[in-house]
Design a protein around this nucleic acid. Structure first.
Length: 337
RNA sequence: GGGUGCGUCGCAUAGCGGCAAUUGCACGAGACUGUAAAUCUCGCGACCUUAGGUCUACGUAGGUUCGAGUCCUACCGCACCCA
């Protein structure tokens, strides 16, 4: 289902395509998150117009509201959100981190799974790897993710190791549940989704390598790189990609989770052989009054991005632009420009 | 013509003798990374290097008081009621 079309002679970049139950998408690709079954403030028609090929949804959010059974009854996720193309679901692993950090602990982690308090109404929910996979099957997404714990960007190695071990155990359980449901699907003439595994290991080289070895040894369809540090700390993300280079199989798509807050971040990981990435940055910063502006150009055979703005981000709401009638980019013919 | 009420930082509000003065909006700046985020943080009279200090400020002009946005008088403006 993953086909490499062309490889760069200069760096590790590659062009490819991935076949899913709802069509083919080309890689490298940015996938906008539509966490609650909608990309906030952007409808499906507009997404198509800007050549978006695949969306993300979130298992945990949809489980809490409106529930996977309702979505399933209404014809599954594509019908529910009016998006006919490929959809990837995140397993809820990111929430294991985001719900338990700082503030009130909304999540309790154990070997079995994670107990959540719903941020909507406080109701208690237990999510296990098996449960997460089951929900993703009911949603009917095209690519599902193994349930993991998004490792914190912390120098506590003991915790990172423990957390990684848990993620590995959960990866096996996720895969087992997937194989079981997959058989059922095939026997009843339905097509099962693809499943991706997630490498953790925090900020530690030996743990990252250990995790990469373990995850790539399992029969996942794609390999994701997870953890708070991925995308958030770009120098470290690139370092991780560099030392994991020989551990990642060439014939499986690679996905850096949560990466893409700045155009340059995407270019940097694509150069290092990453095929897929997603980030709430672009849509969120747009809702908060900013847009990306800069120039992508070839230099010394490589792709580069330069912008006069910090992180390539132009704050369109700044008073200095109040009477500025210029297009964002003179050379761009998109609707916004 | 008579009566009553009201004028507070762009707008709207609080304040009822110790106040550079509440809150919301607007405005200004910043944060945002597998979305508890169309959210959040900070600033919003002027000047001084800060803890803080110094001026100028609640329609206008006087007055009472140690002290007035707050009380009194007059004026100006606005709203409503009665002729």
């Amino acid at each position: 289902m993953f086909k490499i079309i062309k490889k760069s002679k200069i760096d590790k970049a590659r062009l490819g395509e991935i076949q899913t139950n709802h069509g083919i998408f080309k890689t490298p690709i940015f996938m906008p998150p539509g966490t609650q079954a909608t990309v906030k403030a952007v409808g499906p028609d507009d997404l198509s117009k800007i050549d978006i090929e695949i969306l993300l949804v979130n298992t945990l959010h949809l489980h809490l509201q409106p529930g996977e059974d309702l979505i399933n009854d209404l014809g599954a996720i594509h019908q529910f959100m009016g998006w006919p193309g490929p959809i990837l679901s995140d397993s809820g692993g990111f929430q294991v981190w985001s719900f338990s950090r700082n503030r009130q602990n909304l999540a309790k982690i154990s070997e079995d799974g994670v107990e959540f308090s719903s941020p909507i109404n406080g109701s208690k929910h237990l999510i296990t790897p098996e449960k997460s996979i089951e929900i993703q099957y009911k949603l009917g997404t095209d690519i599902i993710m193994a349930f993991d714990e998004c490792s914190p960007d912390s120098d506590n190695k003991e915790y990172a190791k423990k957390s990684m071990g848990r993620t590995h155990q959960w990866a096996e359980r996720s895969l087992k549940k997937h194989q079981e449901l997959s058989k059922k699907y095939i026997n009843s003439g339905q097509k099962p989704p693809l499943i991706f595994g997630i490498i953790q290991g925090g900020i530690f080289e030996d743990l990252r390598k250990e995790s990469a070895k373990f995850i790539t040894s399992l029969p996942f369809d794609g390999i994701a790189l997870g953890g708070e540090t991925i995308g958030y700390n770009m120098p470290r993300t690139l370092e991780i990609l560099d030392y994991l280079r020989d551990f990642l199989p060439d014939n499986k798509p690679r996905y850096t989770m949560g990466l893409g807050a700045s155009p340059n971040d995407i270019i940097e990981v694509v150069k290092r052989g990453v095929d897929m990435f997603d980030c709430v940055g672009p849509t969120r910063t747009a809702r908060h009054g900013s847009l990306y502006s800069g120039e992508i150009f070839l230099k010394d055979g490589g792709v580069n991005f330069e912008s006069e703005f910090d992180k390539g981000c132009l704050r369109i709401s700044n008073s200095r632009f109040e009477n500025d009638n210029n297009p964002i980019d003179k050379n761009c013919d998109c609707y916004t420009c």
